[in-house]
């Protein structure tokens, strides 16, 4: 049983107009076996949270903490975080020219486990996982994400999730840009990874659509860098009907109150 704990997290980025605060005090606790959905309108800071957990250098944590079973995640480098068991399925996976998927997957698996995977079972595992996600076998020989469609890139992210077996998975808008079929395939992959019982999931999404396939235990609504409402799966249903509009006024009220 592991715990990923985010406490009063403040994060800013440097822009041409100066420093801009994106996350304004976020607290969340995720335990093994739980699925937390983070929902919110564009620009609310959802993806910033995901990238900050993974350690993207663009984001500066100004205060607060992230710990994994008490270990200070913020003190770890990007690769140390991954080896500690944090996985980020990226919203826009980058293409890495000249590096084949096969080479990449094996190198990453070796780094995460601290030893090279047994060649025969590994090849079989990769093939099986690719087949389940309906990724063509020839993708193994292609360069990482190069020339992949949006949907293929997302499937390859989930492929890695299934192969690397992290303690916590952060899915950054994995559902965006997917058609219904691809969404189902990807969701099944996440559910398989979850069924192992050794993973906690932070699912970041703009839409409620993916929540028909991946059932969240908790839903957190993000507006303007803060969690404005929390609840169980029923909150997602309500968002489906009402959208985010009612929070817009809420945020304005909060801002007005802060200024007063």
């Amino acid at each position: 049983m592991s715990t990923l704990e985010i406490k009063d997290l403040h994060v800013s980025i440097e822009t041409e107009q100066g420093t801009k605060e994106i996350l304004k005090g976020v607290s969340l606790t995720i335990k093994t076996g739980e699925t937390h959905a983070i929902m919110g309108p564009n620009g609310s800071g959802k993806s910033t949270l995901a990238s900050t957990i993974a350690g993207h250098p663009r984001y500066t944590v100004t205060s607060g903490s992230i710990t994994l079973d008490g270990e200070d995640v913020l003190a770890m480098s990007v690769d140390e975080r991954a080896r500690a068991g944090v996985f980020l399925a990226m919203q826009y996976p980058v293409e890495v020219p000249g590096v084949t998927m096969t080479n990449f997957l094996r190198t990453a698996k070796t780094a995460i486990d601290g030893e090279a995977p047994a060649l025969r079972t590994w090849t079989k595992d990769v093939k099986a996982a690719m087949a389940q996600l309906r990724i063509d076998a020839d993708f193994a020989q292609r360069n990482v994400n190069e020339g992949f469609s949006g949907g293929e890139k997302k499937r390859v992210e989930i492929l890695q999730l299934e192969l690397f077996k992290p303690k916590f998975a952060v899915l950054d808008e994995t559902d965006s840009g997917l058609d219904v079929d691809a969404l189902k395939v990807v969701s099944e992959g996440v559910n398989r990874a979850h069924e192992g019982g050794n993973m906690g999931t932070l699912l970041i999404t703009h839409y409620t659509r993916i929540l028909r396939y991946i059932k969240p235990d908790f839903v957190h609504v993000f507006v303007d860098g803060q969690v404005v409402e929390e609840g169980g799966p029923e909150l997602a249903d309500r968002l489906e009907e009402e959208g985010y509009d009612r929070y817009a006024t809420g945020a304005a009220t909060i801002a007005a109150a802060a200024q007063a």
Partner: peptide, 23 residues
């Protein structure tokens, strides 16, 4: 590129080499 590879647990020196080799 480096971030993507490092986010998969690959140490920076190995990631750099992978990218240059690929290039």
């Amino acid at each position: 590129h480096l971030f993507y590879l490092m986010a998969r647990g690959i140490p920076e020196d190995v990631a750099r080499r992978l990218v240059v080799r690929g290039f």
